[in-house]
Amino acid sequence: MSRRTLVFVACSPHPRSGVSTTARLLTDFYLSRLADVEGFDTDPHAPRYHELFPDRTQVIDIAAIRGQISLFDRLLVDDGVPKIVDVWQRSYDRFFKTVKEIGFVEEAHLRGVEPIVLFHVDPSETALASAQSLSASWRDLPMVVVQNEGAAPLGAYAHETLGHYPSTRRFVIGPLDGAVAKTLEQPDVSLSRLLVAPPPEMSIVIRAALKAWIAPIFTQFHSFELRRRLEGAQFLK
């Protein structure tokens, strides 16, 4: 079985589409399984993702060449450690421009690293156009459409909207009740620890709501991971 180092690029050209939430959930997914994981936050002004995992993430200024070196040179290391990039919406254009200019995707494939775009959908036409543009630029770059029903609800025409996206693979992040969502904003709340040993001071209702929210999301991540392993299984070919 060929195992590849996964690089998840959580992105959206628009704000408030749930990019940092996905980066957080994915990081916690690996941590909950006691797996190593490394993250990169491309918002140097308000690095929310980095604040949640200060020991496992670094803040990158993608506009600076040194920042690009810190990011892309590290992403290209095939060490089996999954890497997660939280692409801030204002870094979106610069990030993919750099990816193109330096030939990152092609080099990653040569080195046994597999970048996967986690594209966060919203109802706008421009989001769809951005996803189609990415897909057209890199035909062999896997894309998973992330539908965050709380941050960027698609409304009644969700199915039709998603049908236009250039990927059939999808993660659905369910909506959270306001009070529960507020709990998540506290930087000391760890989703991975919550599953194993919930903090005793946390309300039982909130704890249950969070677990109910996380469980299907982690199941999707697990299912995705298993599918990738099956696809890479040489003995099945």
Binding site: I69, F72, D73, L76, T98, G103, F104
Partner: peptide, 11 residues
């Protein structure tokens, strides 16, 4: 050498 810098030079 950094891949990023090599990429820029190549482009």
């Amino acid at each position: 050498h950094s891949f990023v810098l090599r990429g820029y030079v190549r482009t």
